[in-house]
Amino acid sequence: MIEKWVYTDKQKRLVEKGERIREAAAANAKEADRGASFSDEVMKVVKEERYPSLPLPKEAGGENLSLYEFLLMQEKIAEGDGAVALSIGWHAGTMMELRDDRPWKEDQLQKLMDEVRKEQKVVNRLATEPATGSPTRGGMPETKATRKGDFYIINGKKIFASLADHLDYCIVTAYVEDQDDVGLFLIERNAQGVTVEKTWDTLGMRGTESDDLVLTDVEVPVSSLVETSTSKTVGPKGWLLHIPACYLGIAMGARNEAVEFAKNFQPNSLDTPIIEVPHIQDKIGTMEWKLLQAHSFLYDTARKWDEYPERREEWKGELGAVKLAVTNAAQEVVDLAMRISGGRGLSKNQPFEKYYRDVRAGLHNPPMDDAVIKMLAQGV
């Protein structure tokens, strides 16, 4: 079976943390999905497990989480609720990028890391806007930062603001007028003028709480400008593999539920549960080989990223290909799980329809399939 991993002692301990978060996520998934909100109880468990500080260097009070370890935990959490994994994955990935690339002034970075370590504070990058679409497409933000003495006044709106009401800090992109550049501002979520509009009403991943963040005359010190487009680091971002890991976890959850359903469902037209029916066995076997391929591609790439940091610039295409391959495989696995459960899988009393809705969102997380295919073609 897929889950028969061979763990190091550290990996085992981290996966156990992920399992405890998974349990909380699963227990609160229906309510979070129904209310399009992130559960307070789940966030409490996330912080008790010190998940926000795990990516920090050991000298900063963290576990120096590797990419491989990060993906193991993300996949495990997503088996309980993909929305929880995707949401908290943005924070953990951001902290990994800050740890590895050191793009800010050291005092700014140290201050944030100290707060994450001491108080398990949560941060997310917010770049998407109504007019620009995905920031990976290169649109100029309409959010503007106007210099006023030792402060900037920021006005604008961000959409897809995951964990909107559970963030402690937002890293917000804005056009910086006096520099004629795009800047990133570190802003406290409870700063005056920062509000959330409860607009998140989607088909899937409802529990990410990705509402709109509105900034109205938000005044921040000049030091809050932590990066600009001309100063930020560029290159492959391995931590973005948390996206396919999340959808792989959803597929694993669906596969597990489908196998249990097949073991226990026996219509009166049969002498055995449906798991003995040939076409059901074909579907289970197909799920298995698709999952084996997806796991191999994802974790082999993560292992290389960790073991050969000097070669990371070579792997931009491979990182995109992993996302494309794994998220599409996850779609196929969940579809097969739905076919095993039949019409019963459409019921709100069954877990399958939520897996089906949530896994679709993977097609719309960056990088998009067309962009990956174009990049791979140009790299030949």
Rank of each mutant, 00 (worst) to 15 (best):
residue 3 E to V: 15
residue 9 D to H: 11
residue 11 Q to K: 08
residue 19 E to S: 02
residue 21 I to S: 05
residue 26 A to G: 01
residue 43 M to W: 04
residue 45 V to R: 03
residue 46 V to W: 12
residue 47 K to T: 00
residue 51 Y to H: 14
residue 55 P to T: 00
residue 59 E to K: 03
residue 59 E to P: 02
residue 66 S to R: 14
residue 67 L to N: 05
residue 67 L to S: 05
residue 80 G to D: 04
residue 80 G to M: 06
residue 85 A to Q: 03
residue 90 W to S: 13
residue 92 A to L: 09
residue 95 M to N: 00
residue 98 L to R: 07
residue 99 R to P: 01
residue 100 D to M: 04
residue 100 D to N: 08
residue 101 D to L: 15
residue 101 D to Q: 15
residue 105 K to E: 15
residue 105 K to A: 15
residue 113 M to F: 15
residue 114 D to M: 09
residue 115 E to A: 01
residue 116 V to T: 09
residue 118 K to S: 04
residue 125 R to Y: 13
residue 128 T to D: 08
residue 132 T to G: 08
residue 132 T to Y: 03
residue 136 T to H: 12
residue 137 R to F: 11
residue 143 T to N: 11
residue 145 A to D: 05
residue 146 T to W: 07
residue 147 R to Y: 10
residue 151 F to L: 07
residue 161 A to D: 05
residue 161 A to W: 10
residue 161 A to N: 09
residue 161 A to L: 07
residue 162 S to M: 13
residue 167 L to T: 00
residue 174 A to L: 04
residue 176 V to S: 06
residue 178 D to M: 08
residue 179 Q to I: 07
residue 180 D to V: 14
residue 182 V to Q: 07
residue 183 G to D: 04
residue 185 F to L: 02
residue 190 N to I: 06
residue 191 A to N: 10
residue 209 E to N: 10
residue 219 E to V: 14
residue 223 S to W: 02
residue 232 K to Q: 14
residue 234 V to E: 10
residue 236 P to Q: 05
residue 238 G to H: 05
residue 240 L to N: 15
residue 243 I to L: 06
residue 245 A to V: 01
residue 249 G to E: 01
residue 258 A to Y: 10
residue 259 V to W: 12
residue 260 E to D: 13
residue 261 F to S: 04
residue 263 K to L: 12
residue 267 P to D: 03
residue 267 P to S: 01
residue 268 N to K: 05
residue 271 D to H: 10
residue 274 I to Q: 07
residue 281 Q to E: 13
residue 281 Q to H: 13
residue 281 Q to I: 13
residue 282 D to K: 07
residue 282 D to C: 02
residue 288 E to V: 03
residue 290 K to H: 11
residue 292 L to C: 11
residue 295 H to W: 10
residue 298 L to W: 08
residue 299 Y to V: 13
residue 303 R to A: 14
residue 307 E to A: 01
residue 308 Y to L: 09
residue 314 E to V: 01
residue 315 W to T: 00
residue 316 K to T: 06
residue 318 E to N: 02
residue 320 G to R: 02
residue 322 V to N: 06
residue 328 N to W: 08
residue 328 N to M: 06
residue 328 N to H: 14
residue 336 L to M: 08
residue 338 M to Q: 12
residue 341 S to R: 05
residue 341 S to D: 02
residue 342 G to N: 04
residue 345 G to L: 03
residue 348 K to M: 12
residue 351 P to R: 04
residue 352 F to K: 04
residue 356 Y to E: 03
residue 356 Y to F: 12
residue 365 N to D: 07
residue 368 M to K: 15
residue 368 M to W: 13
residue 374 K to V: 05
residue 376 L to S: 13
residue 379 G to H: 09
residue 380 V to H: 12
